[in-house]
Design a protein around this nucleic acid. Structure first.
Lengths: 143, 143
DNA sequence: TATTGTTATACTCTATAACTATA
DNA sequence: TATAGTTATAGAGTATAACAATA
């Protein structure tokens, strides 16, 4: 019955991913954001203007979609489009004060480890961290 | 700079989740399925008829959406609606032969551990499995 | 010529509300 | 009365193709 340890580990991790999907959807609903809007808000960092194209990369969607997603975030006063200094084709996105505030509320939902992590001792949490870093570091996301 | 080990472990796991999101989107595109359709196909198990409502739970969406998603899967000959024996309000979903075949192709994409897992020794994979099971088991998904 | 972002289009997903058929 | 699934509706996400402005 037992598959190899790697597959079993991956299976457990996918369970956690499905649970996290629920948390993310709940957070989006609570913050009155669509899932892509929530992802976009998190991809933007305070004080770090980013081109529209960066959002397309994170969202893994076509650039044409970013236009509409940013339109709605901008309509709500959460982000602003600004001309990029070095290339007049590029538009930079910056978080507004309200955008930063909403982003902080999103972080409170999503950055905290799920309650299941409390089942591990401090030593076990360190072990888990090191193992996960090894896995994540070994597989740099393909562009 | 270092947060607590739990947060650091969670951060590494979220990196893996974002990477997995890319894999899932690539698989859906490759199989010519939308993300919800792919999720639905995976939620149905060969030889195990399931009510529409089960899909709504897995997809975490309203029941009204399931109608359309199943409509399109049925139009493509991947699933079939059947009357449930015990309650004539309920409709059971079953995978067709084509549905099972496509589901196998989806599993090939998604069930295999990402390449990063190869960075771990067999012992480390077992450690990771045990730690993840402890975390996942401690936090049964809230209904 | 190539790239960034926009527009137009068609399709899918999504929740809400109202509805049908059953329980 | 309550529940399973459908329909109608409106808004949002999605890719494709064509386009403007800029490089």
């Amino acid at each position: 019955m037992g598959a190899d340890p790697g597959s079993e580990a991956w299976s457990a991790m996918r369970d956690l991913m499905m649970a996290q999907r629920g948390t993310m959807l709940a957070a989006a609903s609570e913050l009155d954001l669509s899932p892509p809007q929530l992802l976009a808000l998190r991809a933007l960092h305070p004080g770090e203007p980013a081109p529209m194209s960066a959002l397309a990369q994170v969202l893994r969607c076509d650039a044409s979609n970013v236009t509409g997603i940013v339109d709605r975030l901008e309509d709500r006063g959460l982000v602003q489009r600004r001309p990029a200094p070095h290339d007049r084709r590029v538009k930079h996105l910056v978080l507004t004060e309200r955008g930063e505030e909403l982003r902080r509320r999103a972080a409170a939902w999503l950055d905290a480890p799920p309650p299941g992590f409390e089942a591990l001792s401090a030593d076990e949490q360190r072990e888990l961290r090191d193992l996960l870093r090894k896995v994540a570091g070994a597989a740099p996301r393909p562009a």
